[in-house]
Amino acid sequence: MSAIYKVTKAEFIKSGTRPSHFPPPLQPEIAFGGASNVGKSSLINSLVGRNKLVKTSKTPGHTQTINFFNINDELVFVDLPGYGFAKVPLEVKAAWGPMMERYLGGRPTLRAIVCVMDLRRGVRDDDMMLIESAPLFGIQPILVFTKADKFGKNAGQQRLREIARELGCPPGELVLYSSTNGQGGEQLWDRIRQVTGV
């Protein structure tokens, strides 16, 4: 099953902040989470081969709702609000945790969460909280490190091995990704297809 999944349809479904806003849970869902400005939206766009499916912004905290996208009428990608240093109002930050818990704990079709991190910065405390919370909700975490193009090939692999040692896991469990050149796309699609069966 080692081939990039062919995306022929990718479209926005709807946004929401609470379960009553969410679309019915009919297809397997893959959520994407990470710190503000880590390149999450760019990763989703590159993964589905669309430049503007998910709106990108250089302003941290741009995504403040949970956004659902239909992929080929058989998968749903879910873009979660970024966490961390975003300059968003305190009441928005305060609502983030409960909103996320309601989503992560209440979607029977949610199969995995892609935890998106910057290869240069490694795993931060907020990232670790997301990674460790996934199994509590019965969700498979998929660890992806973006900005791979900022490193030479050997340097990128060396950095990944360092992070794997810190996490106590094999380097092969981590995905090295570049939204600029598509590096890691096949590996990430393999992981998504394994957990969704598409």
Score class of each variant (00 low, 15 high):
residue 189 W to Q: 09
residue 122 G to Q: 07
residue 82 G to M: 12
residue 111 R to M: 11
residue 142 I to P: 01
residue 126 D to C: 03
residue 17 T to C: 09
residue 107 R to T: 10
residue 21 H to R: 08
residue 36 S to F: 07
residue 104 L to V: 07
residue 138 G to Y: 06
residue 44 I to A: 03
residue 182 G to T: 11
residue 190 D to Q: 14
residue 46 S to E: 09
residue 21 H to P: 06
residue 12 F to A: 04
residue 81 P to Y: 05
residue 131 I to T: 04
residue 85 F to A: 08
residue 194 Q to C: 03
residue 14 K to D: 09
residue 92 V to E: 13
residue 189 W to R: 07
residue 107 R to Y: 11
residue 161 R to Y: 00
residue 128 M to P: 05
residue 27 Q to A: 13
residue 154 N to F: 09
residue 185 G to Y: 01
residue 36 S to V: 12
residue 197 G to N: 05
residue 41 S to M: 08
residue 17 T to Q: 11
residue 20 S to G: 04
residue 173 E to H: 09
residue 168 G to E: 01
residue 98 P to G: 11
residue 18 R to A: 15
residue 113 I to D: 00
residue 70 N to T: 06
residue 10 A to E: 04
residue 3 A to W: 12
residue 181 N to C: 10
residue 99 M to F: 07
residue 172 G to A: 13
residue 28 P to V: 00
residue 100 M to T: 04
residue 183 Q to S: 06
residue 198 V to T: 13
residue 10 A to C: 10
residue 160 L to E: 01
residue 30 I to A: 01
residue 112 A to F: 07
residue 142 I to K: 00
residue 22 F to P: 08
residue 41 S to Q: 02
residue 113 I to L: 14
residue 43 L to Q: 06
residue 198 V to A: 12
residue 6 K to I: 12
residue 87 K to Q: 11
residue 192 I to P: 10
residue 173 E to T: 13
residue 55 K to L: 05
residue 107 R to N: 06
residue 27 Q to P: 00
residue 96 W to C: 03
residue 48 V to K: 02
residue 89 P to T: 05
residue 198 V to I: 15
residue 8 T to Q: 11
residue 81 P to R: 05
residue 191 R to T: 03
residue 13 I to Q: 02
residue 61 G to N: 07
residue 168 G to R: 01
residue 125 D to V: 15
residue 93 K to V: 11
residue 163 I to M: 03
residue 182 G to H: 09
residue 59 T to D: 04
residue 98 P to H: 06
residue 78 V to H: 02
residue 68 F to T: 02
residue 16 G to D: 09
residue 60 P to R: 02
residue 194 Q to N: 12
residue 40 K to G: 08
residue 134 A to E: 01
residue 59 T to I: 15
residue 83 Y to G: 03
residue 60 P to F: 07
residue 131 I to D: 01
residue 2 S to H: 15
residue 85 F to D: 07
residue 30 I to Q: 00
residue 63 T to Y: 06
residue 65 T to W: 00
residue 149 D to L: 09
residue 32 F to S: 09
residue 141 P to R: 06
residue 160 L to P: 07
residue 125 D to I: 13
residue 98 P to M: 02
residue 198 V to L: 15
residue 73 D to A: 10
residue 126 D to L: 15
residue 102 R to L: 15
residue 88 V to E: 09
residue 104 L to H: 05
residue 141 P to N: 02
residue 22 F to V: 07
residue 40 K to D: 03
residue 41 S to V: 07
residue 42 S to C: 08
residue 105 G to R: 04
residue 101 E to R: 14
residue 92 V to P: 08
residue 184 G to Q: 04
residue 119 L to R: 00
residue 155 A to Y: 00
residue 85 F to Q: 12
residue 131 I to Y: 08
residue 186 E to Q: 15
residue 84 G to K: 03
residue 178 S to W: 03
residue 80 L to P: 08
residue 133 S to L: 14
residue 101 E to G: 06
residue 155 A to P: 05
residue 127 D to K: 06
residue 185 G to M: 11
residue 43 L to A: 04
residue 17 T to M: 14
residue 146 T to S: 13
residue 191 R to K: 15
residue 190 D to P: 00
residue 191 R to L: 10
residue 41 S to F: 08
residue 170 P to C: 04
residue 180 T to I: 14
residue 140 Q to N: 13
residue 142 I to D: 00
residue 143 L to Q: 14
residue 23 P to F: 01
residue 98 P to W: 05
residue 27 Q to H: 13
residue 114 V to F: 10
residue 29 E to D: 08
residue 159 R to D: 02
residue 51 N to D: 15
residue 64 Q to N: 08
residue 14 K to V: 14
residue 107 R to M: 08
residue 13 I to T: 10
